[in-house]
Design a binder for these strands. Structure first.
Lengths: 194, 194
DNA sequence: TCTGTTTCTTGTCATAGGACAGGAAATCAT
DNA sequence: ATGATTTCCTGTCCTATGACAAGAAACAGA
């Protein structure tokens, strides 16, 4: 039944009993977003926890000068969510937007809470995911201090090549903390030797 | 009994029943660190969850060039922990060091797990704390992109004045992503009109 | 296909912050 | 106190990146 189900790999059978796995999987609902759709809008409280099965998305915030700053990119297997908004039930401070057609699995907050408080393995997994997001953010944050822009771009190229190939220069540049102009020059330099 | 206990404010009575509060508070152990002591060492797995009652501390990582980069500062009421190491049971990538005498309340991992899995309010509180740390890191991270160094320093001055007063220039500078030289100049500029 | 719009590239010039070095000031150990 | 060490300040010069502007290229809509 669930042999090749995307979520059966997310909640794998040694950690989850068959019954738990079934309960979790049936609680999720599949949704699809078209390129450009917003999975989340700034100012609204996040209603759903999303697992991305396929597609690309990005989160972005608008800074005090009105500039659009990409704060994260999401690909297959990622959790696509504004953690703060979802868990603190507060208005989101970022938008999350599909960059291509996205297939996701969603859970509303009440359902998440029910699973979280009744299934021990689910809450361990949930906590682990949150901690992993934290460490990724921390790495990015340290990299902003210690690495020059070129290195940060090369790392993104290594870790999320599909992003570098499919996302606009400006959106990637703002994520790296540089201007589109600079990123364009960095790409040129990399295109010649390293 | 627990009227003025520091932890009774951390786990307040409307959210926690008296019995739960008592169970939680007795599970914590008070510890004291002298200035310079390490609460956490890089490479070792975090053994304790710490609440800081009083004192100052900082976390720092050593980058590829061997430079010491401050990654966070902690004051009264903060949780002092390497989240990733504690929850993923993996070696810490940072040191955490007392910058003055610190009084903390600690919980080992097994005890944390027991409370987390048996007391619903405790796991809600724990998750909330983690999410709050996440949002602080995110704000700092966005600030690194959008704000010039002077603004970042002014924000730190606003949010953690005791840090700016008591921590060495170099340690603050590395946190802000600039050199001690630059921070020294920024301070001079602020000392004259803004 | 033509046309308008967005995205990307490149140039020139300006500027924040880094590297390095020397000196002053504070802190510490004996 | 005295010297040693660390921390902090300041000067000069340099580099990475930003701001702005103008083309080129890609793309979207009729």
């Amino acid at each position: 039944m669930t042999e090749a189900h995307f979520l059966s790999r997310v909640f794998p059978t040694p950690s989850f009993s068959a019954a738990e796995q079934a309960e979790i999987i049936t609680a999720f609902r599949q949704v699809r977003f078209a390129k450009g759709d917003h999975l989340q809008e700034e100012g609204k409280t996040a209603r759903y926890y999303h697992f991305m099965e396929s597609g690309l998305a990005r989160s972005y915030a608008t800074d005090t000068e009105g500039r659009d700053i990409s704060t994260g990119f999401y690909t297959s297997g990622d959790i696509v969510i504004d953690w703060t908004s979802f868990f603190l039930r507060s208005p989101a401070r970022e938008h999350i937007q599909a960059l291509s057609t996205c297939t996701c699995w969603q859970l509303d907050f009440e359902t998440f809470q029910r699973l979280f408080h009744t299934i021990e393995a689910f809450r361990e997994a949930g906590r682990t995911r949150l901690v992993q997001s934290y460490v990724e953010l921390k790495n990015q944050s340290i990299s902003m201090i210690t690495d020059p822009a070129r290195e940060r771009y090369k790392r993104l190229l290594r870790e999320k090549p599909e992003i570098c190939r499919n996302v606009s220069l400006k959106q990637i540049a703002s994520y790296l903390g540089i201007t589109d102009t600079s990123l364009s020059r960095i790409r040129r330099e990399i295109a010649r030797g390293s």
